[in-house]
């Protein structure tokens, strides 16, 4: 009996499901960042708004990367339905704290996929996911560093202005 399934699909169904869940998570993150960008814009935090617009685009790129991989491997990529995002925040610090929580959730989910790939001997998907593992290190670092500024400078108007100006300059150097 031919192995029709393997001839057509290179990744197991259970892994495809998890990758589709990740697609949804990235789409939700993209929408959440867009809402954060809007809040920052409304409150005149221009640099933070720019930062979150870029983050939103980046998350969408991550989603598309996963989406193409699922299709290329012969799986069914599901265009995700995205739930409403939080659009009200009490402070700029809260925005970044929420962003960090989001990133931690994404990291956990990616780690879980890598762990499942190992259990299922799916080396190709594990290799593919390593790019996301590396990316998450950077994403978490940048937001954590911005949150450090709040600890250092406080949240009076002048400090907030200084923090906002520094947001775009934070980068992760390995």
């Amino acid at each position: 009996m031919k192995d029709l399934l393997r001839q057509r699909v290179a990744v197991q169904d259970s892994i495809i499901k998890k990758l589709n869940n990740q697609v949804k998570l990235e789409a939700q993150a993209s929408a959440a960042y867009l809402a954060m960008a809007a809040w920052c814009d409304q409150n005149a935090y221009d640099h933070s708004a720019k930062f979150f617009y870029e983050q939103s685009s980046e998350e969408r790129e991550h989603m598309m990367k996963l989406f193409h991989y699922i299709s290329d491997m012969g799986g069914i990529a599901v265009s995700p339905a995205v739930a409403g995002s939080q659009s009200e925040f009490s402070s700029l610090k809260e925005v970044f704290e929420t962003a960090l929580e989001n990133e931690i959730n994404v990291t956990e989910s990616i780690n879980q996929i890598v762990s499942d790939c190992r259990k299922n001997n799916d080396f190709a998907t594990e290799n593919f996911m390593q790019w996301f593992v590396k990316e998450q290190v950077e994403e978490e670092f940048v937001i954590r560093r911005i949150l450090d500024y709040f600890e250092m400078l406080g949240e009076d108007p002048k400090s907030l202005l200084m923090i906002d100006e520094r947001v775009g300059g934070v980068s992760y150097g390995e």
Binding site: K2, L4, Q7, V9, G74, G75
Partner: peptide, 28 residues
């Protein structure tokens, strides 16, 4: 599974549905 045609036949309550691998996965 029909090896020569590279497809599946699902029969349910007397009706037959032919599906290639892609259709089968989409249906699942």
């Amino acid at each position: 599974q029909a090896d020569k045609e590279n497809c599946f036949y699902m029969t349910y309550k007397g009706m037959e549905y032919k599906m290639n691998v892609c259709s089968f996965i989409a249906f699942k």
